[in-house]
Each structure stands twice: as C-alpha cells, then as structure tokens.
Design a protein around this nucleic acid. Structure first.
Lengths: 200, 200
DNA sequence: CAATTGTCGATACGGATCGTTTCGTATCCA
DNA sequence: TGGATACGAAACGATCCGTATCGACAATTG
C-alpha cells in the first residue's frame, strides 16, 4: 500500500504530458464527429503520441474518451443542501439535464452506448459518473429527513432509481426531450408525498 | 394506397427466404458472441446469402439484428386488464425484467447501446419496442381510472416514465440486478398513492 | 414469344482500422 | 556504466466496410 509519489521503478518514466495530449485529442475528435470519429489512429495523429504508447495505457479508443470525459465533466456535481430539499433536487437534476442538452450531451449518450457492450467501460461509468451523483442525492435526502423536511419512511435508493431513471430513460431509451416542467413533475411525484406538512 | 399482395413490379422478385435466413443468422451470431460478432461478412457466410443482397435490404449489421430481435421478441407484451391494476403492472414489468435476465437480455442491452449512436436504429427501437409497451401501460391506467381503481389525477405518461425509467436505468445505467422486490417497490411507489380506497 | 427489369450469388476492389511487433533512440535508477 | 523501461516511427496481417461488376435467373410487359 505504499503509493509512492515519484517513480519507484527503474527505466525511463512515462511521459506525463502524453496522457494529457491523448485525452485532449480524443475528446476533441469525439465532440467533433461523434465517438466513432475518435479512433486510435486519429488520436495518435492529432496528439502526436505514437500508437504503441497509447496502447500501453488504454485498451481501446472508447476508454480514452471515457477518461477524458470523466476528468473534464465528472467533477461537476450540483447539490446545495442549504436549499429546501425539493428545490435542491430540481436544481441538481436540471443541471444534469442541461449537460444532456449541451454540447457534451450527445457524447455522454454515445459513451453510455459504448458501455453497453464493454464491461470495463460500464464499470468506469457507473463508479465515476453515476454513483457519485446517487451518493450525493441519498445524502441530501438523509439530511432532509434529519432536518424534518422529509418523512423518515422515504427510501433514498428507490428515490434515486426513480428520479435518475426517468431522466436517463428519456435520454437513452425513449429519446424524448426534457424541459423544466418534466423535471418538476418527476421530483414532485417522487418526493412530494414525503414532504412533511403537505399531504394533509 | 394499393398495397398489392403479390409482386406488382417487373423484374425478378426478391427471395422470400433470403431475409429470413439472414435474420436467423444475425440473431444466432449476436446471441453467441455479442452484437459486434454479427458482421455483414459473417452473416453472409453463415446464411449463404450474398453480401450484395444483404446490403440491398439493410443499411448495416445492427439493423439486421434489431429486425430479427423485434420480429422474435417484440410481439410478447404481457398486459392483462382483468387483473387489479397493481397486479397487472407487477406482472407485466416482471415479464420484461425476465427478458432482461434471460438469454436475450444482453442482446437487448447491446441493441440499445448501438441505438445511442445510430439515429435510425434508435427510432426503430423506440417505435417498435418501447412505444407499444408504453401504449398498453397507459391504456391499462386509463381503464383502471374508468373502473374506479385509480384516482383520475394520475398522469399516465409520467407513470410510464417512472416505472420503465427505473428498470431501464438499472439495466443500462447503473448495471444493477433487479428482483421481484424491487419491481413491487417501484410499482407501489408510482401507483400506490393513487389507488382508490387506500391512502386514507 | 421476346424484351425489359430487377434480383440473385460470386467475386474483387480500395480504404479504414485494428492490435501487434520491431527497431533504434531516449531517460531514469543502481 | 549497465540494466530496465518508455518513447516515436514504421510496418505487419487481419478484419470489415461499402461498392462495383459479372453472368445467370425469374418475373412482368407488349
């Protein structure tokens, strides 16, 4: 468990900039012409990093795009527990849907598509993109219960399945648009009955 | 609008058996080694139908697999309006999840994945697989409202987004298992509050 | 019956991409 | 100074793509 900072092994160390150049090139190519446009050959040509070097670090082109995407977009999670729980969810889900509708939306869709037939890709996606959001959502619910905003009977996990399920279903299964009204309806429908001081 | 039964056009008619042989071969290959194993070259070799003939009928390999899948599995829709609405939904969603868990589940997942970066495939999937199920689900809800089983306040479309959203989310986004308990929880959570004679 | 029209299977083509390998060079550690 | 490892460049065989060509075949049309 000694995660040494500098290089513990002999031999020439891996170039630190190579990975960055490769990921930047892969992201550019994928944003420009869809994920299938980001091939290893093209990434190598655009980044100036040799194919052999790339294959030493990633198993295939989709994995590069996934890494690049998660590094760039992954950290953005918008939960704000100072807001009322319902508003908090509306805002955070709306922020997610704005990513869907923005320039990275199609790429996210393509990545999720590729993950359907690539186990490692799917695991990376689930652990680095999906789970952090679920986690924060669950925590927001638990906090809201503590504050007395929500009925303790609520099932946080099921709530996440329903809310995120509905928006990903629209994005990737029924391929239909989402507006603010839809998000409000979903959040209301899932949280509404558990809001304290309402369902009288 | 004269959809003639036999061949109205001159020239040699298309072989009726060719499409069947192609679809059977494509489905076999896809079930055997994943959707990427069903290439045009292999389908041609296995089915004995020439590549040129295949390209005359389908734009790419995924489209063949989609057609084959929908022809074989598509018709199976299990709604039974004689049951109480809650039981009806539990059964039909359970039947869908059993498809997910069965031999065709991974194929469905792969097809949905391919549809993320193939517009035509996505539209075929939405119109031939998703929409018929939503339609029957909505009708079941409307009937239940008429029968007085459900509160007329319920939103059938939103209910479909929530129920199907949750199960597809588990299949394709969070990659987690589904058991009967999960399905009961989802259906209960979405329909429960609208069941007449309960939330007193 | 003969001409027309479209499909059939077989085969070949150029092109893209894959993933691997080889080679000489560069860089770090002991 | 070695030994070990990474680097870029280049070439490899293989697969699949989508298109085109070919002669043979089977239906309609006149």
């Amino acid at each position: 468990m000694s995660a040494v900072s500098s290089s513990p092994r002999p031999g020439r160390p891996r170039s630190a900039t190579a990975s960055l150049k490769v990921m930047a090139a892969a992201l550019d190519l994928a944003l420009e012409g869809g994920i299938h446009h980001a091939t290893i050959e093209r990434v190598s040509a655009v980044s100036g990093v040799a194919k052999s070097t790339i294959y030493r670090r990633w198993p295939n082109a989709s994995a590069i795009v996934m890494d690049a995407f998660l590094d760039k977009i992954g950290p953005i999670i918008a939960y704000d527990s100072s807001l009322p729980i319902e508003t908090n969810f509306r805002h955070s889900v709306m922020a997610l849907v704005e990513v869907f509708n923005g320039p990275h939306g199609r790429l996210l869709q393509h990545l999720l598509g590729a993950a359907q037939s690539d186990r490692e890709l799917g695991e990376a996606f689930a652990s680095r993109w999906i789970e952090p959001r679920r986690q924060m959502g669950r925590e927001a619910i638990v906090e809201a219960v503590k504050k007395g905003e929500l009925d303790p009977e609520i099932d946080p996990d099921l709530s996440m399945d329903l809310i995120y399920g509905a928006v990903y279903y629209r994005l990737t299964v029924s391929f239909s648009e989402m507006d603010e009204g839809f998000i409000e309806a979903v959040v209301d429908r899932v949280l509404g009955d558990y809001l304290v001081g309402r369902s009288v």
